[in-house]
Amino acid sequence: MFFTTLAGGALWALACLLALDSAYAQTPPQAWVRQLSSEVIDATQRDRSSPGDATALIERVKATLIPAIDFQRVTRSAVGPRWRDATLAQRQRLQEEFKTLLIHFYAGGIRQISDYSVEVTDTLPVPNQPSQVIVRSRASGRGETHQLDYRLDKVGDDWKIVDVSLDGIWVTLSYRSQFAELLAKGGIDSLIEALAEQNRKGNPS
């Protein structure tokens, strides 16, 4: 139902997992990505040794994604202007359901990325956002090359993932266009229920 592709899920999983270890928080973003990429690839190869252990993959994603992403901010961006109309309780439900959706999405992608190689190319400032940078890279595998960029924000001493782009398509904007259709039809509660239903299926695709 929601925006996913096999390649997209795999590459977005890689992008997020590249930026997750707080030990590298003091490292410049481009070097940080370069250091972590080989470690992540090694880890995903180990994960592939137990192909039936979906629970272990989900737990791995939870352990790494949750500390690295400001889910309230990501959810607010994906929901768009209608976020202002949501009650506190609705915002909490949206955040939890969207977090669960993304955890399953990335867990599904992890299995697909062990044969990709990543070349970090450069780091760009974000206009009018002095605490943010965009780290650009190219991901190659299976005869394809994709432009993989992600936006990081410095919060205190830590980098936080704000958004990820695959071939110029930013993930929060992709979700926003889909969420907008549900919001137009049934409002905030309709979106919450759609997310919850997808999560009950355990396969947000």
Rank of each mutant, 00 (worst) to 15 (best):
residue 177 S to G: 01
residue 68 A to V: 05
residue 113 I to G: 03
residue 129 Q to H: 13
residue 84 R to G: 09
residue 120 V to Q: 01
residue 132 Q to D: 14
residue 129 Q to N: 09
residue 98 F to K: 01
residue 113 I to C: 06
residue 74 V to S: 05
residue 87 T to S: 15
residue 114 S to K: 01
residue 85 D to T: 09
residue 128 N to I: 04
residue 84 R to P: 00
residue 78 A to C: 08
residue 129 Q to K: 12
residue 71 F to W: 14
residue 170 W to K: 01
residue 122 D to E: 15
residue 139 A to H: 01
residue 58 I to K: 11
residue 172 T to G: 03
residue 69 I to V: 15
residue 98 F to N: 04
residue 59 E to A: 14
residue 105 F to N: 08
residue 153 D to C: 05
residue 70 D to G: 01
residue 158 D to T: 06
residue 60 R to Q: 13
residue 140 S to H: 10
residue 137 S to N: 07
residue 111 R to A: 15
residue 176 R to A: 12
residue 108 G to L: 00
residue 175 Y to L: 05
residue 139 A to R: 00
residue 99 K to V: 06
residue 167 D to I: 02
residue 143 G to V: 04
residue 111 R to W: 08
residue 170 W to P: 03
residue 96 E to H: 09
residue 123 T to W: 10
residue 84 R to A: 14
residue 160 K to P: 07
residue 154 K to H: 13
residue 86 A to G: 07
residue 110 I to S: 10
residue 118 V to H: 00
residue 101 L to D: 06
residue 92 Q to K: 14
residue 165 S to H: 04
residue 85 D to C: 06
residue 140 S to Q: 15
residue 165 S to E: 09
residue 101 L to A: 11
residue 99 K to F: 04
residue 173 L to R: 06
residue 138 R to M: 13
residue 62 K to W: 07
residue 179 F to R: 02
residue 123 T to E: 15
residue 164 V to K: 00
residue 70 D to F: 04
residue 83 W to S: 10
residue 178 Q to D: 11
residue 151 R to G: 08
residue 115 D to H: 12
residue 66 I to H: 12
residue 128 N to M: 06
residue 130 P to E: 11
residue 169 I to R: 07
residue 155 V to D: 12
residue 97 E to F: 05
residue 142 R to T: 12
residue 127 P to Q: 02
residue 138 R to G: 00
residue 150 Y to H: 10
residue 64 T to S: 11
residue 153 D to V: 12
residue 162 V to K: 04
residue 95 Q to H: 05
residue 126 V to L: 07
residue 82 R to H: 09
residue 128 N to Q: 10
residue 173 L to G: 14
residue 112 Q to W: 13
residue 152 L to T: 04
residue 139 A to P: 03
residue 108 G to M: 06
residue 111 R to L: 13
residue 126 V to F: 11
residue 153 D to A: 12
residue 67 P to D: 06
residue 86 A to H: 05
residue 86 A to I: 03
residue 131 S to H: 12
residue 79 V to K: 02
residue 117 S to Y: 02
residue 91 R to N: 11
residue 141 G to A: 10
residue 143 G to W: 10
residue 137 S to T: 12
residue 84 R to I: 12
residue 107 A to T: 05
residue 163 D to R: 02
residue 77 S to I: 01
residue 121 T to W: 07
residue 90 Q to D: 14
residue 99 K to W: 04
residue 160 K to Y: 10
residue 143 G to D: 10
residue 115 D to S: 13
residue 117 S to C: 02
residue 174 S to M: 11
residue 124 L to H: 10
residue 178 Q to W: 02
residue 122 D to V: 08
residue 148 L to N: 03
